[in-house]
Design a protein around this nucleic acid. Structure first.
Lengths: 141, 141
DNA sequence: ATTATCGTTTACGTTAACGTAAAATATGAA
DNA sequence: TTCATATTTTACGTTAACGTAAACGATAAT
C-alpha cells in the first residue's frame, strides 16, 4: 500500500543525454532556481523522475520562446510548499494568464502555418513556370 | 484593370508603433537582411503593406522561439527573385520541414497546456485545504 | 525661413543563456 | 588500491538581439 516508485534516480549526465541538453545547461537552471535536485554523500547531484519531468517542462517552455524568468514564474506555481494563501492565489492568477496566452499561441501557430503554406504555393507556381514542361534535362554538373 | 493599391506607405515609426517594436529592432532586422524597404529621395525608409506583413511574420516566428537566422531561412523562401530552380527547390524542402515542425509544436503546445492545468489543479486543492470553509475574513490591510 | 520632430548612420553597451577551461573531488571498475 | 571517468565549483568568454547615445541630415508645421 505504501508503494511509491522511489527507486529511480538519474545522474546529471543521464538527464543531459535523455533530454538532449548539456550538463552546463542543467546546472545553470539550478543556479536560476528552476530545479533543486538532491545530493549524494559526496555532493553529486541526483535527479528523481519528478525532477526530470520539471526539466522537460522547462525545455518545452523554452521552445515556445518563453524566457527562463517567465518559466521560473510559471513553475513557481509548483513548489509553493511554504507559500501562504496569498502567494498561491497569485500563482493561480499567473497560471490562468498563461493559459490564455497559450490560446493565442494556438491561433498564431495557425497563422504561421498559413504564411508558410502561402509562400510554398508561390514557389510551386514559380517553379512550374520556370520548368514549362519537364525537367528531363540531365545536366548534373 | 491595372488596379493595385500601391498607394499605402508607412514610415519606420508607423510600423514600430503598429507592431509594437522599436525602430532599432526594425533596422536591426534590415541589417540581418530580413527586410529591404524602399527609400525616399532623402534616404528615409518607406514601408509597403507587404513589408509590414513580412515583419509580422518575423515577429510571429520570434514568439515561437525561432532565431532570426531560422526565420531568415524561412522567409528566404519569399524573395527568391533571382534564384535559380535549385535554390527554389531547396527553399521548398526547407518550408516543408518547417511545416512538420509546426505540427510538433501543436502537440507540444497541448502538453504545455496540460502541465499548467495539472499544476493549477494541485494549487486549487491546496488552497481549498488551507481555507477549510470560507474566506469571509474581511482584513483588507 | 525656422523650429520641432523625425530619421540616418556609426558605434559602443547590455543582458540572457549558455560555452569553455581549470583545479579539485567522487565514483565505478579492475 | 589504483586508474579512468564523471562531477563539482569557480570564473572568464561568447553570441544573439537588441538598447542607448552622438552627431548629423530630412520633413512638416508654423
Amino acid at each position: 500500500m505504501t508503494n511509491k516508485k522511489n527507486t529511480i534516480r538519474y545522474s546529471i549526465s543521464d538527464i543531459a543525454s535523455d533530454l538532449d541538453v548539456t550538463t552546463r545547461t542543467i546546472r545553470f537552471y539550478e543556479e536560476k532556481g528552476l530545479i533543486m535536485p538532491e545530493r549524494t554523500a559526496g555532493n553529486q547531484r541526483v535527479y528523481t523522475p519528478r525532477n526530470k519531468a520539471r526539466l522537460k517542462l522547462i525545455l518545452r517552455g523554452k521552445r515556445f520562446g518563453f524566457s527562463l524568468d517567465d518559466i521560473s514564474e510559471m513553475i513557481g506555481m509548483a513548489d509553493s510548499d511554504t507559500n501562504e494563501i496569498q502567494q498561491i492565489e497569485k500563482s493561480l492568477a499567473f497560471g490562468n494568464a498563461k493559459l490564455k496566452e497559450i490560446q493565442e499561441r494556438r491561433k498564431e501557430l495557425s497563422l504561421l502555418e498559413q504564411d508558410i503554406l502561402a509562400t510554398r504555393e508561390k514557389l510551386i507556381q514559380r517553379i512550374t513556370q520556370l520548368k514549362p514542361s519537364n525537367n528531363l534535362n540531365r545536366k548534373e554538373e
